[in-house]
Every structure is written in structure tokens, then in C-alpha cells.
Design a protein around this nucleic acid. Sequence first.
DNA 1: TAGTTGAATTTTGAATTCATAATATCTTCT
DNA 2: AGAAGATATTATGAATTCAAAATTCAACTA
Lengths: 227, 227
Amino acid sequence: MSKIQHRSLYLEVADRVRELIEQGDLAPGERISEKQLCERFGVSRTPLREALKVLASEGLIELLPNRGARVMRLTLKMVKDTYDLMGALEGLSGELACQNISDEGIKAIRALHDEMLRHYHDRNLPDYFQVNQKIHEGILAASANEVLQEMYSNLSQRVKRVRYSKKMTDDFWRRAVQDHEHLIIALEARDGKRLGQILRDHLCNKLEVASLAGVIEEERTLNAANA
Amino acid sequence: MSKIQHRSLYLEVADRVRELIEQGDLAPGERISEKQLCERFGVSRTPLREALKVLASEGLIELLPNRGARVMRLTLKMVKDTYDLMGALEGLSGELACQNISDEGIKAIRALHDEMLRHYHDRNLPDYFQVNQKIHEGILAASANEVLQEMYSNLSQRVKRVRYSKKMTDDFWRRAVQDHEHLIIALEARDGKRLGQILRDHLCNKLEVASLAGVIEEERTLNAANA
DNA sequence: TAGTTGAATTTTGAATTCATAATATCTTCT
DNA sequence: AGAAGATATTATGAATTCAAAATTCAACTA
């Protein structure tokens, strides 16, 4: 028997709009037409507007009084600030993970780490990225701090759509892997302070930001045309 | 001429409900009646429900499908987790503040610090608390990271209503002041790493949590009666 | 008396309607 | 032709209405 879980319409709508923004179907700075989205989703304006309010409080869109909604436009500074914050949160997750993670949990992360190394040696960037992310998510989960996880995923969502920097110099990559070596050592030693420090300093995020300068700049000029 | 700033009704309502929760007029776990609040505020259900959705996404209330809203019930773990997070955020704010704060800014914080010391020597707890908070807010503002500030104030709001722990042992108080001595030294030396570390370890929050165990426990039994 | 069933009532979810502010279109005039 | 102003259209803000789910409460059964 299937459990009948009737989610509210506005949650469904919010999810759909999040997808549209993430996928880029709704461009940054683009005006969001209520009627258009209503027709697209086949719902009335009431649940749509509720969804928009939620998305605004999540920082994904902005609501201009009497002038509708538009997709939040990311400035370079905003993205930098967000990554700084995510770094701090990861640092905390490291400290807490060391306190709470089980021996099996550590083994699981170690396995991911080894897998990641294989992808590194194969120069398989996509798989490397994916496993890398799994490691960070694993530590986050091991922190056993739900508020932390909630905040992190909100921040992550905000900048998700600009995470398309696929260029990664060999030097940066080597240093990132080096960081991860230290990371796994600290984790296995359950050295929370150390792991926290490593994660805070981990250049992964900053690297992405650096290579993002172009992307954001591009957006800026595009939006200038729009406005 | 007065600037006509017509804020949306739902924002006004959200503010009012936040106040009610903060003040304790709406008790944790208490069911929120839409009709009742509508009559109280003199608005229709539409803006009220929009406000409730926003407050839910802020973590202040929870929405049960088809069963209305209730004020979020704080567990001891939730509060602990939130304070851990706030500590991490303060740590980051310290690092960033050292990079961005002006010499005048440092002087201003120093002035607050000295004022706080006077209140400490006078054993004037309320004023001590207030100035203490101003110092932390000042550092936060000096971080020049708006995303950070936004997130911090959200977390702060969530636990605001349990910040009524007025008992403070002499020993704890002495150590808190000691922390602040180190804090101001690190700030004046613009030693970001150090200031960050101090703020993360600053026991102020943990102290409050410790003394909160009672309050929350009390709530738990109350709610058990409700449910 | 305790527990269960089933209407009556209340409350919530969502669509519709109405009012008002913003935008676009059309005159009119220089 | 182009700018300024008036009018029409459209979009948003908020109240109202309608439908469906939950709650209440009385009657009934064991």
C-alpha cells in the first residue's frame, strides 16, 4: 500500500520554479510573469504567489512591490560572500563530524577518498567532482547538525546555477587533492580542530570563485542590456 | 514631504507575528488560528497565509498540511545546534572584520569594550549584556558580508525567545570578560585567524545553552501535556 | 460506561473576483 | 516627426468565495 502524501501546491510550485532557475530556464534578472507561470503549471495565482514569497525569503528571487518578481541577480561579491560562508559552515561540519561520526562512517569517507584519488589519477574530472562533493556532503551529514545542513543547502542552492566552471588548472587540482589527503588524515585521527581548519581553508570554493569572474561579468553586461 | 513607502501587507503581518512569537504571546507548540490572527490584524487570510509561509521557511513556525500552523517548538538539541552555527558565523565575521574594518571602526569597538568593562566592574548585568551584544554586532557589520549578516540574524531570531537566562555565575562572567580582552587585542592587531578562533570558542553562547537546559525541559513537559 | 460511527461545524487549500498601481497605447500639440 | 499628456490595457495586491479536509459532538452499540 502506498502512503498518500498530499503535498501542498505551493511547495510543488516552489520546487518547479527552483528547477527552472537552476536550469537557467529563468535567466538572472529576468522578470517572472505570474500569469505565464500559472498557465505553465496549471495552477491559480494564489499558490504561485505563496511559492514566490518563499523563494524570495530563500534569496532566489526578489520581489519588487507592485512590480512583480525577478530572478535574483548574482554579483561577484555576493557569490564570494556566499562561498566564504559555506567555507565556515564546512569548517564547523568538520569539527562536529569528528565528534559524532562512527568508525564505519569514517571508513565510508575513506572509501570515497580512495575512489576520488583514482579519478584524479585517471584525470576524470566529472567523476572526480562528483565524488569530491559526496565527501563534503558525507562530512556535513556526519555533523549531525540539522540546522547547519539546512543552511548549507540553502546557500548551495543560491549559487548552484553558476557552478559551471569546468576549467581547472593542474596546479589547482593537485593542491585540492593535497588538501583532501590532509583532510582524511585529520578525520581518521578525529582531530576536529584540524579538520575544521582544513575545510575552512580548502581552496576548492575560492578556486571556483576565481574562475567565475568571467561568468558573472558576462551576466552583468547581459542584464545591463535588459535594464 | 513624507516618503510613501507602501510595504506589502504580508511583510507587515510577518513582522507582527514575529513579534508575537518573540514576546511569547504565541507559545511554542501553540496552534496558530488563521481566523483569530486575521481579526487581530484586520487583514484577510491571503496576506496572512503568505506571511505564514515565509515564517515557516525562516524556521519560526511549522506548517502541517491541512492542519494549520504552530509555533516551532525548540528542542535543546536544536538550540545547541543553532548556537554552534552562530559561533562559526561569528568566527568568520571576526576574520573578515580584521580585513575590512577601518581604524575608526576599531576605535569604536574599543570604546564599546571599555564601556562593557565598566558595566562589568559595576556588576551591571543588563547594560553589560547590551553592550556585549553591540560589540558582536559591530564585528558582524564590519565583516562587510551581507549574506553572513542575513543568515546570522535569522538564526538569532529563531532562538531569541529563549534568551531569558539571567543567571550568570561569577566564574563564567569573569571568563567571558577575559575572552573579550583577548578579542580586542586580536582585533587591534588585525589578527583575523586569532579573532576568528576566539569568537568560535567564545563560551558566551555555550554558557547560555547550559543554563537553558531548564527552560527547554520545562517546555517539553508543557508540550507533552498539549499533545 | 467506554468506544465507535456518522452527521454538523469549523478550518484549511485554492480559485476567483475586485481594486489599485504600473505599463502601454493613442492623441494632441509644437 | 517627436514629445507630453490622456486613456486603455495589463499586472499586481488583497478580499472573497468555493471545495475539501479535519475536528467536534451527539447518537448508538456492545
